[in-house]
C-alpha cells in the first residue's frame, strides 16, 4: 500500500464518504450525544474503538466461515451476532483490566453494540473485498470521520444555545435542520481528488 493510496483512503473515509453526513449511517448517536462537546468526544472514541475491533472480527468471520460454506446471505445476522458479543466481551475486559478507560467509554460502549455505522463498515468492507489490514484501516478512518462529524455538530449545537430561532424549532427540529445544512456542506467534497 503506497502512501498516496493511504491519503486517498483517509480523504474518502473522513470527508468524501463521511459515514454520518454522506452515507447517513449512525444518525442516532449523532443526534443523541451531540449536545455537549465532552460527551461527543467520549462517544467518538468509543465508536473508533468498536469499529476497528469489529471490522477485524467480522473480516475473520466473512473469510473463514461465510465464504467457505457459501452462506453469504447470512452475513447481516452473523455480523450482528459477532459485533454484539465482541462489544460485551470488550466491556467486561475493560471493567476488569483498565477501569479508567471503562469509566471514560463505559456508558457509550453498550449504546453502539448494534449501531448501523459499525455494521455498515463491516458490510462495506466485505462488499469491497479488501484484505485484512486495509479493512481495519478503513474502519479506523471511518470512525475518525464519524468522530469528526460528531465534534463539528456538537460545537455548532453548543452555539445554537444562544441563537435566536422560532420556539417551535426548539430541540430536535433545529438540530435536524443544522444536520441537513452540515450534510450539504459535506456534499461539496464529492469528486475531490488529490492524485488523479
Amino acid at each position: 500500500m503506497t502512501w498516496q493510496s493511504l491519503i486517498t483512503m483517509s480523504l474518502g473515509a473522513i470527508l468524501i464518504e463521511n459515514f454520518v453526513l454522506v452515507r447517513f449511517l449512525g444518525i442516532c448517536p449523532f443526534l443523541g450525544v451531540s449536545k455537549k462537546l465532552d460527551t461527543a468526544m467520549g462517544m467518538g472514541m468509543a465508536v473508533i474503538f468498536v469499529m476497528t475491533a469489529a471490522s477485524a472480527a467480522t473480516w475473520a468471520v466473512q473469510e473463514y466461515l461465510l465464504k467457505p460454506l457459501d452462506i453469504g446471505y447470512m452475513q447481516t445476522v452473523a455480523f450482528i451476532l459477532v459485533i454484539a458479543a465482541l462489544v460485551q466481551l470488550v466491556e467486561m475486559f475493560l471493567q476488569k483490566a483498565v477501569p479508567a478507560l471503562y469509566k471514560a467509554l463505559g456508558i457509550y460502549l453498550p449504546l453502539i453494540t448494534t449501531n448501523c455505522a459499525v455494521l455498515g463498515v463491516a458490510i462495506i468492507n466485505s462488499d469491497n473485498g479488501t484484505g485484512f489490514l486495509e479493512s481495519v484501516l478503513f474502519a479506523f478512518l471511518s470512525g475518525v470521520g464519524f468522530t469528526f462529524a460528531l465534534l463539528l455538530f456538537a460545537t455548532i449545537r453548543q452555539r445554537l444555545e444562544f441563537a435566536e430561532y422560532p420556539d417551535a424549532f426548539e430541540g430536535f427540529p433545529i438540530a435536524l435542520v443544522t444536520a441537513g445544512l452540515l450534510a450539504m456542506c459535506f456534499m461539496g467534497f464529492s469528486g475531490l481528488e488529490i492524485f488523479p
Binding site: 460454506l69 447470512m74 459477532v82
Partner: peptide, 14 residues
C-alpha cells in the same frame, strides 16, 4: 443445514 449449524454454532460458542 450449513447456515443453521454455522450460525447456531457461532451463537453457542460466543
Amino acid at each position: 443445514q450449513y447456515a443453521v449449524l454455522a450460525l447456531g454454532g457461532m451463537g453457542i460458542v460466543l
